[in-house]
Each structure stands twice: as structure tokens, then as C-alpha cells.
């Protein structure tokens, strides 16, 4: 008993404090992915049945709604094209490097971590599809998280709301740089070490700043929902709501930014 106790505590310590298990963790992703896939089958089946048994009128209605949405997006895209061209011209005037067009692949979520404290998800794409550790994960509305372990055909991603996650952002309005931290709540993030005097307001959009060399620049992360500046405290208490639908999205985008250099 003593032996097993010591062994499990040793494994736990190695798991938490060292990176000796990294290779094993990546391999484990492939081993447990089928388990998540199997446990997801009932959900998949009901989704399939829903699609099959949808009445014609509802389908037509959905189609109509999607068409309208597409039209709105197309209009925005037209504007974007000219803006992009203008941006490139201005950048050339400034002699700075052109922004890279980010390539993405779509991955499907096949499982979520069963422990409600741990905000991790399992995806159905792995190193065979070019996924790498540290890759940014987005949904249609904002940044969701990053890949932490990669198997051959599956990978594991950490959401920005996990207590062990933090990322550098900036306020879109004025470019103030801040750190946003997960607090274990899917609808709430904490903005760390924001000085009392900093210019930040409720409703400000926080976008990724790319300073950590991990996330690409300029993706929306969160919207500020509360700012409490108490002069008695060294920092203002700022909370924000994630833009991405962390517990809804079934399909996510994995962005191919330049892969980060191997850590020393």
C-alpha cells in the first residue's frame, strides 16, 4: 500500500511539475480519443435524427435565414477587401512586413473534459493533419483556446476560461496591453493587473495582441463587462465575457500561424 501510495504521488508530482510525461500525454490523446468518440455516439445519433426528420417548412426557413446572413457577411467582406488593400498599401509605405493571410482547418469537437473544473476539449484532428502544440483555436465569434497535446488523429485543447490559462490582449479602442486570465467560469474572464488609472471601459473589445508569440494578432477575445476602480487597491478589478461560445461550438477553426520556435 505504501509503495502504491508513493508511486501515485510520484506520478502526480511528475505530471504536474515536470515535462517528462509530455510524450506520453501526446500518445495518450490517441488512446482515449476513441472512448470520447464512443461516448458521443448517442448525441451524434440524435443530431442525425433531427436533421433527417426536420419538416420542409423549417428547412426552408433555415435556408432563408442563412441566405440573409450570407448576404450581410458578403457586404461586410466587400468593404473588407478594399480596407485590406488599403492596409497593404499603407504598410508598404511604412516599409513594414505584410500581414500573413492565416490558413485554417476545421476540426470537430469530439469530447469535453468530464470534470467541470477542467476546461479542456478533445478535437478530431491530430499531427496527421498538421496540428501542433500551441496552435490557436477559434470559433466563428472569437478566440477559444490553444492546443496542448497532439496525438496522431486527435488532440487536446485548453480553453481560455481554464484556471491555468492566461493570454496577452490589448484593448481594441486604444491599444492598451493587458493579460486576460481564466477563472474556471465559461462566461467570465479576469483581466489581471489593470492599473486603476488605465483607460478601460465597459463594452471595450479585447483582442489578442500576439505578444506571447503564441496567438495570432487581432482575434477578438472578450468584451469588458465590469470595471471596478477602487483607489484603495493597487489594481482595478476588471472582468470580461469571452466572445467565443466556449460551451456551444461544435466545429472550431485551427489557425496555422507560423509555428513557434522549439522551446529551449
Amino acid at each position: 500500500m505504501t509503495l502504491l501510495t508513493v508511486l501515485s504521488l510520484a506520478i502526480a508530482a511528475i505530471y504536474t511539475y515536470t515535462d517528462w510525461f509530455d510524450d506520453l500525454k501526446n500518445r495518450a490523446t490517441d488512446i482515449y480519443a476513441p472512448l470520447y468518440w464512443v461516448s458521443d455516439l448517442p448525441g451524434r445519433a440524435s443530431e442525425w435524427a433531427d436533421n433527417r426528420s426536420m419538416p420542409r417548412a423549417k428547412l426552408a426557413q433555415e435556408n432563408e435565414a442563412l441566405r440573409t446572413e450570407l448576404l450581410v457577411h458578403k457586404r461586410k467582406l466587400q468593404q473588407l477587401a478594399s480596407l485590406k488593400a488599403e492596409n497593404v498599401r499603407l504598410r508598404q509605405l511604412l516599409n513594414s512586413a505584410d500581414t500573413l493571410e492565416d490558413r485554417v482547418i476545421i476540426a470537430e469537437l469530439i469530447g469535453i473534459a468530464p470534470d467541470p473544473e477542467i476546461h479542456k476539449v478533445i478535437l478530431n484532428k491530430g499531427s496527421a493533419d498538421g496540428v501542433y502544440v500551441g496552435q490557436a483555436m477559434l470559433d466563428a465569434t472569437g478566440l477559444m483556446g490553444q492546443i496542448v497535446h497532439v496525438g496522431v488523429h486527435a488532440s487536446q485543447a485548453l480553453l481560455i476560461s481554464d484556471t491555468s490559462h492566461a493570454l496577452p490582449v490589448q484593448v481594441n479602442r486604444n491599444g492598451v496591453r493587458l493579460i486576460v486570465e481564466g477563472i474556471g467560469d465559461l462566461y467570465k474572464l479576469a483581466v489581471r493587473h489593470a492599473p486603476n488609472t488605465v483607460d478601460i471601459q465597459v463594452g471595450d473589445l479585447l483582442v489578442s495582441s500576439g505578444l506571447g508569440q503564441r496567438f495570432p494578432v487581432g482575434y477578438p477575445v472578450a468584451e469588458v463587462t465590469e470595471v471596478i476602480a477602487d483607489p484603495a487597491k493597487p489594481f482595478a478589478q476588471v472582468t470580461a465575457r469571452p466572445m467565443a461560445e466556449l460551451n456551444r461550438s461544435r466545429h472550431v477553426l485551427l489557425v496555422f500561424d507560423q509555428p513557434p520556435a522549439e522551446e529551449p
Partner: peptide, 23 residues
């Protein structure tokens, strides 16, 4: 202990947590 370790790997909890508890 073995069951616990399998559960840890499957659930992505700290390896050894459920192993110790179940043991």
C-alpha cells in the same frame, strides 16, 4: 490502482489522483 490510473488517463485529470483514491 490500475482502474484509477486508466480513469486518470481517460479523464485527463492529474495522473495518479484517481489511482491513489481508488487504491
Amino acid at each position: 490502482w490500475c482502474i484509477g490510473l486508466v480513469q486518470d488517463v481517460a479523464e485527463n485529470t492529474v495522473w495518479g489522483a484517481h489511482a491513489l483514491a481508488l487504491m
